[in-house]
Structures are given as structure tokens and as C-alpha cells.
């Protein structure tokens, strides 16, 4: 016994749509990839860091140039301020049984050390956030 709509255009369209959706789902499940980038805190301008001079700059100068620090460490009567900007780039390729994933995290980081009078005594910086890469592992 045949269904009255079995060979109708509507039925053919329905079958085609279902097959297409199934093929799309299958294709998506077989292989997919992901690329993402996440950033923590604003970038630290190198020219601002260059203006911080031990023996000359004060805590007010540093706050005006770089803003509020991410961390303050008390060292007796002295202090140290940390500024950090992080960039993480992640890429992944996912097959049926195997996933390849690469994560690269790099940072701009500055530590400013102050004496008892809140004058800058030392500064250390590493500006490497721009070197973060999308990089899949290879065998």
C-alpha cells in the first residue's frame, strides 16, 4: 500500500532536506576547528614604561602613566607594584578520534619597586604579549 504523498513534490523536498541536514551534521562532526583569542587587562605601552626612571619617578608618576596596578606587594616599608597584560591564542583541529590543540600565552609584565618615600628604586619589564601565536602541534 502506498502513501498518497509518497511521490509528491512535498515528500521529495522533505527527504532531500532531511538528507542534506544529516550530511551537514555528519560533516560537522567529522571535522571542526576552533580559533580563539583572549586578552586580560589593557596593553602596557612601551613608551610609558620608558618614562619611569629609577631615582626620579614617584608613585604618582607611575600611577599617572600606567594606572592602578594589578597587585601591590608590601616589602617592609617598601612596596612593589605589578602591571600585567596577557594575550592567549588558542587553535584546535578536531577530527573523529583525534584532536590537536595549541595554546600560547604571552604577557606584558612590569614590576616597579618603590623605596620608603614612594620613589621608584627599580623597574623590571618584559613586553612579550605581541609574540603570542596560533600554533597547532605537529608530530
Amino acid at each position: 500500500m502506498h502513501h498518497p504523498l509518497q511521490n509528491s513534490p512535498l515528500s521529495r523536498w522533505h527527504r532531500t532536506t532531511v538528507r542534506g541536514a544529516a550530511a551537514a551534521i555528519l560533516a560537522l562532526s567529522v571535522q571542526s576547528c576552533v580559533v580563539s583569542r583572549s586578552v586580560t587587562n589593557p596593553a602596557i605601552p612601551a613608551e610609558s614604561v620608558a618614562q619611569i626612571l629609577p631615582g626620579q619617578s614617584t608613585a604618582d608618576d607611575v600611577a599617572r602613566l600606567l594606572g592602578a596596578p594589578n597587585e601591590v606587594v608590601q616589602l617592609g616599608r617598601k612596596t612593589a607594584w605589578r602591571y600585567e597584560h596577557t594575550v592567549e591564542k588558542q587553535s584546535g583541529l578536531f577530527l573523529v578520534l583525534l584532536g590537536l590543540r595549541g595554546v600560547d600565552t604571552q604577557a606584558d609584565r612590569v614590576w616597579v619597586f618603590f623605596d620608603e618615600e614612594d620613589n621608584v628604586s627599580h623597574i623590571g619589564s618584559l613586553l612579550q604579549a605581541a609574540e603570542a601565536e596560533y600554533d597547532l602541534p605537529v608530530f
Partner: peptide
Amino acid sequence: CVDGDYNKFRIYQ
């Protein structure tokens, strides 16, 4: 269900 991951991590230098 068999699942494998090959990961590469680089954090700072």
C-alpha cells in the same frame, strides 16, 4: 568511545 588529544602549551618564555 575513543578520544585522543595532542596538545601543545607555551606559557611565557
